[in-house]
Amino acid sequence: MADLENKIKIEGPQSPLTYAALTTHGDQPTESTTFMDMLEEVECKKCKDLKEKLKAAEAANKFPEPSEDVLNFMESVLSIYRPRSVMAAQQGRKRLLSGYDVYIPNVMWNNIESSSGQSGRRLLRNLIRAVFTESELAESAGLGLRKQTVGSKSPLDPKKVQCLKLFVNNYCEKNKWVIPSVTEVNKVFADAVGRARSIQKHT
């Protein structure tokens, strides 16, 4: 940037900024070439280089896995350009974690938060009931920790399970609640499945 600034000269109070030379880019600007004109040209070259790199990556089918910051940026962009119908459907809902499509109505979240009593296990139990239906719980194999046989039930959605585990862990750590152990987390899920099966059996 310092080299670029050194190549700029001001000819007078009413004259536009011009380049004396642009040997870095191999261009020879005319006297009427303005600073903004040259910036646009430089940016266009950068865009072309980037497009060529993307095409090469696409041809080789080798795209690097985006970082969390990139995913968050993409989400913020999508929130601006997402169709209004989709945005309207998500209004009034809380997204538990970025990168997971797990939402809870704000009213329900407020009840969950206030009724958890600073207990990580109770928070997880309430979230399980909010995220999974009784049918999903009753007809599942829970976390799938036990040995499964052919034709047996499938475990709960692993992405939702992972989201709940991470959210509870982060929430407890942030609010200085006791973080439930792995054994306690597994038992909470097992109890939720057992409860749902019992309700389904008696209905």
Rank of each mutant, 00 (worst) to 15 (best):
L124S: 08
I112Q: 02
V150C: 09
K51M: 11
S32T: 14
V77D: 10
V77M: 08
D27T: 14
A196Q: 05
L143H: 04
W109Q: 04
D49A: 14
Q162W: 03
L17G: 02
W109I: 03
D3H: 12
F73M: 15
K51H: 14
H202A: 12
Y103T: 08
E136P: 09
E65A: 10
Y81S: 06
K62A: 14
K176L: 13
G194K: 01
L137A: 04
F73V: 15
A57R: 06
V102N: 09
T23H: 11
E184K: 08
Q200V: 07
V86Y: 02
S67M: 14
G117P: 02
K53H: 03
L123I: 12
I104C: 00
Y171K: 00
I179W: 04
E43V: 15
P66C: 14
M36K: 05
K187G: 01
A130K: 02
I80T: 09
Q28T: 13
E68L: 07
P64N: 14
P83M: 03
S15I: 08
G120A: 10
D27S: 03
A196I: 00
T33P: 01
L39K: 10
Q118G: 03
R121I: 06
S135R: 11
E184D: 10
A138V: 01
A20D: 09
A130G: 04
L143S: 00
S152L: 07
K176H: 15
G99C: 11
A60D: 07
G99T: 05
S140D: 02
L78C: 12
E43R: 00
L22T: 06
G99K: 04
Y103M: 10
D3P: 00
T33N: 04
F63I: 12
E136S: 01
K147V: 10
Q162F: 08
A60Y: 00
P158M: 03
W109L: 00
C172K: 07
N175L: 14
K153N: 07
I128L: 06
L143Q: 07
R93Q: 15
Q28L: 01
N169R: 07
T149G: 11
D49E: 15
E134T: 11
T18V: 15
A57N: 03
F73D: 15
L143P: 03
F63V: 13
E139T: 08
L166Q: 08
N61L: 02
N170I: 12
S140Y: 02
P16T: 04
K9A: 05
S15N: 09
P155A: 12
S152D: 14
E65D: 07
V150T: 00
A20S: 09
Q162K: 00
L143A: 02
H25W: 01
L22M: 15
A138N: 04
N175Y: 11
L71P: 09
S114Q: 14
G151I: 05
W109P: 11
